[in-house]
Every structure is written in structure tokens, then in C-alpha cells.
């Protein structure tokens, strides 16, 4: 049985976008805070801390997850993916980023990492979604700037690009 005292700070190791990282966390430290302030990966944003706005959505072992609703100590050993890992190896935009860029699918950009991380899992599960399916999948992410229309268009474009890529590599 692993027992962590409230006053202690404990080593948490994980991989962040494939790279091993580690830091220390009190038991109560939220994963979002751990990523941003312990690891220094500030691309993941915190918007509500009660699981509704979706700004802090990341992937934990492949699953899109609210980083404000998980404790850092719970993900010791997990594979974490964040917005910082969406670019191509050469640093150019990946398909999601490119589609968001071309569609004006962001304005202030604060919610955008959460949208893209939700989509990155959703488009794996459903590579050829309808606009309505995208809207339902994104209903757990709030954006106050764009009115979502361009985000949905970007999602459709990204799905197309990802399908093209999948057919090329297979």
C-alpha cells in the first residue's frame, strides 16, 4: 500500500509527449498545476478547475482527460500528451494545428489546447466524423471567442488530413 502524507512532497515520474519528466507534488496537487508549474509545460491552460470548461484537457495514457480533475500523484508512471506534442518532429504545425490555423479557429487561444487535445483522441476513435458528431464531442470544451463554427470546420479539415496521412502510411 502506497501511503503519502499530506505534508510530504513526492516524486512523480511520467513521460510528457514521449520525453521522461519528473517533479515533486504534494498529494493534493492537481495534475494541471504540476504540468504547468513543476514541469514548466505551460501550454495546458486552466479555465475553471471544476471540470466543465475543458481548457485543461490533456491525454493520459491516450485518454482525453481534465487535468484539473486528476491529482499529480495519480498519474505516476503515465504517458501524458499535451498541446506541446502536436507539432511535427521538425517543429512545423501538425494536422490539427494546421487546420485550426487555416480556419481562423482560434482567437485568444486560451481554450485551444483543450480543444485540440479532445480532438486528438476523438479523431482516432472516429476518423471520419460528421459535423454534428464533432459538435457533441466538443461540447465539453468551452470557447468564448469564436462561436465554434470555425473550430468545427477545422476539425473536419483535420480529420481529412489525418485520414490522408493514415492512408499514406498504411
Amino acid at each position: 500500500m502506497k501511503t503519502l502524507d499530506r505534508h510530504g512532497r513526492f516524486l512523480v515520474r511520467l513521460t510528457l509527449n514521449g520525453i521522461p519528466e519528473e517533479g515533486f507534488a504534494e498529494p493534493r496537487m492537481l495534475l494541471a498545476d504540476f504540468l504547468r508549474h513543476e514541469i514548466g509545460a505551460t501550454g495546458t491552460h486552466v479555465g475553471c478547475e471544476h471540470g466543465i470548461c475543458g481548457a485543461c484537457t490533456i491525454r493520459v495514457d491516450g485518454k482525453a482527460t481534465r487535468a484539473c480533475l486528476v491529482l499529480a500523484v495519480q498519474v505516476d508512471g503515465a504517458a501524458i500528451e499535451t498541446v506541446e506534442g502536436l507539432s511535427e518532429p521538425d517543429g512545423s504545425f501538425g494536422p490539427l494545428q494546421q487546420a485550426f490555423h487555416e480556419n481562423f479557429a482560434l482567437q485568444c487561444g486560451f481554450c485551444t489546447p483543450g480543444f485540440m487535445m479532445s480532438l486528438s483522441e476523438f479523431l482516432e476513435i472516429n476518423p471520419d466524423p460528421t459535423a454534428n458528431e464533432i459538435k457533441v464531442a466538443l461540447s465539453g470544451n468551452i470557447c468564448r471567442c469564436t462561436g465554434y463554427h470555425e473550430i468545427v470546420n477545422a476539425s473536419l479539415d483535420a480529420a481529412k488530413a489525418l485520414r490522408r496521412r493514415a492512408s499514406q502510411t498504411s
Binding site: 509545460a41 501550454g43 502536436l86 494545428q97 485550426f100 490555423h101 482560434l106 487561444g109 485551444t112
Partner: peptide, 10 residues
């Protein structure tokens, strides 16, 4: 603006 925002580098 997208160049940084989309990379989580805002």
C-alpha cells in the same frame, strides 16, 4: 498570433 498559441507557447 497562431504561431505560438497553437504550439502551447503563448
Amino acid at each position: 498570433e497562431d504561431r505560438t498559441l497553437l504550439r502551447g507557447a503563448g
